[in-house]
Design a protein around this nucleic acid. Structure first.
Lengths: 347, 347
DNA sequence: TTTTAGCACTCGCACGCTTGGAGTGCTAAA
DNA sequence: TTTAGCACTCCAAGCGTGCGAGTGCTAAAA
């Protein structure tokens, strides 16, 4: 039970691959002719019996073929596909696409989600890079008609947030610019706590603005992650195990409601180093709603500065061999982009 | 055939309502007891035969109940629900939610999508307000580490776009600010064309920046709409006609790919005045992929300045009585918000 | 003239039965 | 240790049947 023979490993991997491809329980005879194995079906049956005994395979009912268990997928992933890398050609194609779209972060996110979904033929999710500890970088106040003011706040790391304020009374653009400039000098590179303990000597306007800035930074810190981008939901909708199953729909609901994502990403943030790909198979007992599903997740970015997470969500039967290398590569790629274009700390 | 009798109208509306609720073909006997009508089933049968003759109902097969045709839905919508308004209580609840979330536009979009989806029990879509003719309002250049510069461009109407530039050589924050200030003076309130024909006398840096600003404004104008927000896909996924139908899935794919949306919104932009709700039933022959679906759309905002579109997507069987008033009300509400918080033109 | 009761007819659907085939485990021979 | 053979299991697909909801038509009632 501890260790499988080479032949058992081979058979396990073939069964998993076959099942992933066909979504049908795989039988001994069928496997032989599909894979042109040089053994008889009886031999396969014996080995399959052993693998079933060991907990890697299971039979939906007597006289049906074998289906991988969660442990079976797990073994498959750790022993066969985890190490593999994306082919150079694919890497190049993807890099090229990003090179063309390096203008803005939002486009990266859409592109990354789209590539992940397409490569893995499943649903993808990705959060924009986000700084856990917000640090003030630059503030801009733009007067608009009447008492409305557009406030643009830039954080170290490059996050930009904007909101529209309504002041008690009209203020000229010049006054606004002066206030912003003074705040920019005082607040440069400071964290939320530092700004909160700061006692501004300035006028009422500056104090008000500072309060709003703090609110904004706090709101950002509360959120565990930035905006979440999704793609490829339809891929997973057309999978056979999803067309009628009820808990499949429930999983998709979670997916849409994004609470699941928050949890999963939080977990990934804690458990993994940047670049390490996590594979969550069938909910692993923790997530009831994910019983039939798997999630492949990775973190990207610069720890301590801006980080984000990305992943793929699909049926347990998803193609790990394509998904895992893709997720790893995309995480590396995005980490590179983040460090390249990060709005730095000049202090 | 031209005009229906009052009783026929009544029966048509009851049939449509019943079918919308139950998703089952509705028969004469059943209708009587459900609605406690004071006629016999035979009378209903006669009237139903007339309505079928007139093209408003149809039978899936002999000896099944009646189902509304597209014309049936259309008649129902125009004669029975189009005029209705949302109950005051609901209006107040919704307004209240928006009042709490008036800080930023993005939050509005999410909130609006969520409310639409929830009220209509279907999928909702909404685009951020977008100006067809971009007019320069304000530019900000923020130096970051090395040669990277964060460029924030604000348009009249309040759209904000940001991108990261890489300059040929490092430039100080002061130089950047000066360049931005000069451009802000020259470009104030100008359209893309005016800026393009402008021959800047300034230095190379300013010229380069101006080129990028123009690119950015052009990109914005190319896009027919802003970012698209979706919500409530799961509502429509669990509808009975969607659980296995193939063209239902195709419709959802369109929905996700967002090309459909571009087309639909473009159509809405052309055909409708702000505030008018458009109802597209079963694709109306034009959209093959929407055969089983309906879309309720409206435009919101200030024509000539910032406008956007919002709508609900669902099965033909969707609850028009809830959806149409909600869409209309949300369009009005958002129009109000847009005009309230619009970044104005000071020229 | 309009409405209604009655009736014969239609036809999808759920139910039960049968059958075929893919798959299994076991045993005995190679 | 592997393989051929065999008896056994059991799902899935096909088929017939009866039920019931629904219809249109006709003739009587209002």
């Amino acid at each position: 039970m501890d260790e499988l023979t080479e032949r058992q490993k081979l058979i396990l991997s073939l069964v998993v691959r076959d099942y992933i491809e066909t979504a049908q329980p795989v039988g001994s005879k069928n496997l032989i002719e599909r894979c042109k194995l040089k053994m008889s079906s009886a031999t396969i049956r014996n080995e399959m019996a052993a693998l079933t005994e060991a907990g890697y395979l299971r039979q939906p009912h007597t006289s049906a073929g074998r289906v991988p268990t969660e442990e079976g997928y797990r073994y498959f992933v750790t022993h066969f596909v985890y190490q593999t890398d994306l082919p150079d050609a694919t890497r190049n194609t993807i890099s090229h696409q990003f090179y063309q779209a390096r203008q803005d972060v939002e486009q990266w996110m859409h592109l990354a989600a789209s590539i992940l979904a397409h490569q893995s033929r499943a649903a993808s999710l990705i959060t924009a890079p986000h700084t856990e500890r917000a640090r003030y970088k630059h503030l801009e106040l733009i007067s608009t008609q009447g008492r409305q003011v557009l406030m643009v706040l830039v954080l170290v790391g490059g996050e930009v947030s904007q909101q529209i304020l309504t002041l008690a009374e009209p203020v000229s653009q010049e006054q606004l610019s002066n206030a912003a400039n003074r705040l920019n000098e005082v607040c440069q590179s400071r964290t939320t706590e530092e700004l909160a303990s700061l006692n501004p000597s300035g006028d009422a306007l500056e104090k008000d603005i500072l309060t709003l800035v703090l609110q904004d930074m706090n709101r950002g810190e509360q959120r565990a992650s930035g905006e979440i981008y999704l793609d490829g939901l339809t891929n997973v909708l057309s999978e056979p195990e999803f067309i009628e199953s009820d808990d499949a729909r429930r999983a998709i609901r979670l997916f849409e409601e994004r609470t699941l994502l928050q949890d999963l990403l939080a977990r990934t943030m804690v458990n993994s180093h940047v670049g390490g790909v996590q594979v969550l198979i069938g909910g692993e007992g923790e997530w009831q709603e994910l019983r039939q599903c798997s999630v492949v997740l990775a973190r990207y970015g610069i720890p301590g500065a801006a980080t984000g997470a990305l992943g793929v969500f699909g049926p347990m039967r998803m193609s790990y061999a394509r998904t895992i290398p893709t997720v790893r590569f995309m995480a590396d790629l995005l980490s590179g982009l983040v460090s390249e274009t990060m709005v730095g700390d000049e202090s």
